[in-house]
Computed example of a mutant assay.
Amino acid sequence: MVSWILSRVVVKWMMYWIIFALFTTAETFTDIFLPWLPFYYELKMAFVLWLLCPYTRGAGLLYRRFVHPTLARNEKEIDSCIVQAKERSCEAVLRFGRRGLNMAAMAAVQAAAKVRPPPIP
């Protein structure tokens, strides 16, 4: 029972944050071209309140109508990109790890070469 309630809350917040991220991305461009419109900032604030309000369920409506169908339509491409990113990230970690170990080994050899033994009396 508790896990069901918790999962419902998490899903609703995930829908909100996905829509809010898209809004923030669009806002970056609209803030350049549209701030001269009357009530521009008030409309932006009303839109965010509409997204948040549990009575209007704005974020859920936008997510179900636009985002989810787009994700479902492109699911195979998204999955293949995730697999490629995983493979590339593993290769990059191994490559940088080897490079780091080589640099550490060279630094140790150089430091050992610089140390001179004390003179023998």
Rank of each mutant, 00 (worst) to 15 (best):
S3M: 05
I5N: 03
L6W: 08
S7C: 06
V9W: 06
V10M: 05
V10T: 10
V10C: 04
K12N: 12
W13Q: 06
M14C: 06
M14A: 08
M15E: 03
W17D: 13
F20G: 11
L22C: 13
F23G: 01
T24M: 11
T24L: 12
T25D: 06
A26K: 03
T28P: 02
F29W: 09
T30L: 01
I32A: 00
P35A: 09
P35R: 05
F39A: 02
E42Y: 02
K44V: 01
K44S: 01
A46P: 01
A46E: 00
A46I: 01
F47N: 02
L51I: 01
C53Q: 02
C53E: 04
P54I: 04
Y55I: 09
A59T: 02
L62T: 05
V67N: 04
P69D: 02
L71T: 10
A72N: 08
N74Q: 10
K76Y: 01
E77D: 10
I78Y: 00
I78V: 07
Q84I: 13
E87H: 13
C90N: 07
C90A: 14
V93M: 11
V93H: 07
F96I: 13
R99K: 00
G100D: 07
G100Y: 06
G100F: 15
L101Q: 11
A104I: 07
A105S: 13
M106Y: 12
A107I: 14
V109W: 14
A113Q: 13
R116I: 05
R116T: 05
P118R: 07
P119E: 15
